[in-house]
């Protein structure tokens, strides 16, 4: 167990700087890079954690850590072993970004046939790569941080709450809530599809702010009414494929898309 030394106080309460490690499995490492992006708050951010392993930022490594942030999905057997090892050490295991939470963009290949994908991606130098799976298929995940990529601001807030010992909560409402607060024109009015009504908020309606429909990178909101969105998409003239492509893009809706595939023409899924 790491030795926790209070470094600073807030209102007389000691703050802890947990030993933290960042790991990546199969991913683009974009989420980790995102963390280093906001230079204005970078030093403050780094000072909150005692970072012992961060490939994007430093070279020396340590096997002692409290919190493990793991980016990426699991695609190979050696990653399965690594993940289990990390779980043994970590008090808190954080699935960091949509790949780790849901399989992410990687999991699209699960439906495409692995030989074809391997050839397309690696050409004549194939590497071992199986189905892309979320971390929780293999180990217990204590905390999920959604997004492809994650939002730096949100991660900062989470780390601050960890330092204070406060509960970490995610928005439970869908993207529409934030989209309306930003007074965007609804993409359905513009004749475009959008997964905002069923996708977990917290991104501040990142895509609709630039007039792009949401692709659901944060997975389902707490009370996502996917059957109803299916009806809405149909009414607005979008095909079942358009909806499925979006639902399948990041893996957050896998539970539902499998049901869709089984009942492509059925109007309502049984509850």
């Amino acid at each position: 167990m790491a030795d926790l030394k209070p470094v600073r106080t807030y209102l007389g309460m000691p703050l802890y700087r947990p030993k933290t490690a960042f790991f990546e499995l199969s991913s683009c490492e974009g989420c980790q890079l995102q963390l280093l992006n906001n230079e204005a708050s970078l030093l403050d951010f780094l000072s909150l954690l005692d970072i012992v392993n961060f490939r994007e930022a430093m070279t020396e490594k340590s096997d002692e850590f409290e919190i493990a942030f793991i980016e990426g999905s699991v695609t190979r057997s050696d990653e399965v072993e690594r993940l289990k090892e990390i779980r043994k050490t970590a008090n808190t295991l954080v699935a960091f970004g949509s790949c780790a939470c849901f399989g992410g963009v990687n999991q699209m290949k699960n439906r495409l046939g692995s030989e074809w994908v391997k050839k397309e991606v690696y050409g004549d130098h194939p590497v071992e790569s199986g189905f892309a799976r979320p971390l929780e298929d293999i180990v217990t995940v204590d905390l999920k941080i959604f997004g492809c990529p994650i939002k730096k601001k949100e991660v900062e807030k989470i780390i601050i709450n960890i330092a204070l010992g406060k509960a970490v909560v995610h928005p439970v409402y869908p993207v529409c809530m934030e989209c309306k607060a930003n007074e965007n024109i609804c993409l359905f009015d513009l004749g475009e599809p959008c997964l905002g009504p069923i996708t977990r908020g917290g991104c501040d309606s990142w895509c609709p702010n630039s007039r792009f429909g949401c692709w659901g990178c944060r997975g389902p909101a707490d009370d996502a009414n996917i059957d109803q969105l299916r009806e809405i998409m149909k009414k607005h003239g979008f095909s079942e494929e358009t909806l499925r492509d979006r639902l399948e893009c990041f893996g957050g809706f896998s539970k539902y898309t499998e049901a869709f595939r089984k009942n492509p023409e059925k109007k309502k899924e049984g509850k």
């Binding site: 601050i160 809530m177 309306k180």
Partner: peptide, 23 residues
Amino acid sequence: CLACGTCSQVCPTCYCYGVEETV
């Protein structure tokens, strides 16, 4: 219902709110 909150967001008379404390 999509439980999306759009109706309240666009409504001129809905005034309910939540308060969050951040450090």
